[in-house]
Simulated assay, not measured.
Amino acid sequence: MRPKTCVVTGSSNGIGRGIAERFGEEGCNVVVNYRSSKEAAEEAVETVEASGGSAIAVQADVTDIEQVEQMREAAHEAFGQVDVLVNNAGINQDVLFKEMSHEEWDVVLDVHLDGAFHCTQVFYDDLVDAEQGRLINISSIVGKGGNFGQANYATAKAGIFGFTRTLALELAREGTTANCVAPGFISTRMVEELPEKVKERIRNDTPLGRLGTVKEVAEVVAFLASDRSSFITGEIIDINGGKDL
């Protein structure tokens, strides 16, 4: 049985990298996508291969569909058909809504929503033709509850929920599943750089009393990509330590 081939967008760092490395532990073929962090992407490839998988690093800006098409060609050349697509690429441009420029609004929605649209459309036939096609979108707790200074990010992440549920309906007749993971506050470089008083407030507001880990998110994504999740589709799975209980 051939290894699954998994494309993880925005996987040179953070949650995306953790997902790529977890797929490597499963012995998968992994396409590590990056926009500008070439060195970090190459390090991720080394980690995936050291853990038993195969990997390539592919530069592609997900807001440019032609670059996404080139990423598909690279994936096909290296590994053949793609079985799993994880739409993880994202950015934030935090600013109070009253002061937010249209550019700051557009750039966040472009990466999160246009990026998911481009990648899913380009890899759609792969997912449909795969024996166990899996579409997994990474959203955020912020898409449900909003967050001060993140109107653009919250809107984009909320849009991923509707996108996931619609694709789940359309892909179901092909036997392909689509699910969404919505992490809470995870211990990534971006979160760790927050002021300590802000992190302390987050921990106090979380029933489990701590930040989540990248590994905890990656484990759920790995499950959704596996045959163990074959009757799960259209779901939004929260990984937030009980924060919205």
Rank of each mutant, 00 (worst) to 15 (best):
4 K>P: 09
4 K>R: 15
4 K>T: 02
5 T>V: 11
8 V>Q: 08
8 V>Y: 12
11 S>T: 01
14 G>I: 11
16 G>F: 01
20 A>Q: 03
30 V>C: 11
30 V>S: 04
32 V>D: 01
33 N>Y: 00
34 Y>T: 03
39 E>L: 15
40 A>R: 14
42 E>C: 10
45 V>M: 07
48 V>T: 09
50 A>M: 05
54 S>H: 01
58 V>H: 05
59 Q>S: 09
64 D>N: 15
67 Q>Y: 03
69 E>L: 12
69 E>P: 02
73 E>N: 02
74 A>D: 13
80 G>Q: 12
82 V>C: 02
86 V>Q: 04
87 N>E: 04
89 A>N: 08
91 I>R: 10
91 I>V: 15
91 I>Q: 07
92 N>C: 09
92 N>F: 08
94 D>F: 06
96 L>A: 12
96 L>Y: 13
97 F>P: 01
99 E>V: 08
102 H>Y: 08
103 E>P: 12
104 E>L: 05
104 E>A: 11
109 L>M: 15
109 L>K: 10
110 D>M: 12
110 D>L: 03
111 V>Y: 00
114 D>S: 13
116 A>I: 04
117 F>M: 12
120 T>A: 13
120 T>W: 13
121 Q>T: 01
122 V>K: 12
123 F>A: 05
126 D>Y: 13
130 A>V: 01
131 E>Y: 01
132 Q>M: 14
133 G>C: 10
135 L>T: 00
136 I>H: 07
142 V>Y: 01
158 A>K: 03
160 I>F: 13
161 F>C: 07
166 T>E: 03
167 L>A: 14
170 E>Y: 07
170 E>P: 05
171 L>G: 10
172 A>H: 04
175 G>T: 09
176 T>W: 08
176 T>A: 15
178 A>Y: 06
179 N>A: 03
185 F>Q: 12
186 I>T: 06
189 R>Y: 02
193 E>P: 05
196 E>K: 12
197 K>F: 14
202 I>A: 00
203 R>F: 04
204 N>E: 15
204 N>T: 04
207 P>V: 07
213 T>R: 09
216 E>D: 00
217 V>N: 06
218 A>C: 05
220 V>K: 02
222 A>H: 00
222 A>I: 00
225 A>W: 08
228 R>A: 04
228 R>G: 09
228 R>H: 07
229 S>E: 06
232 I>R: 10
237 I>W: 06
238 D>W: 12
241 G>E: 13
241 G>N: 11
243 K>S: 13
244 D>Q: 15
244 D>N: 08
245 L>I: 13
245 L>F: 12
245 L>V: 14
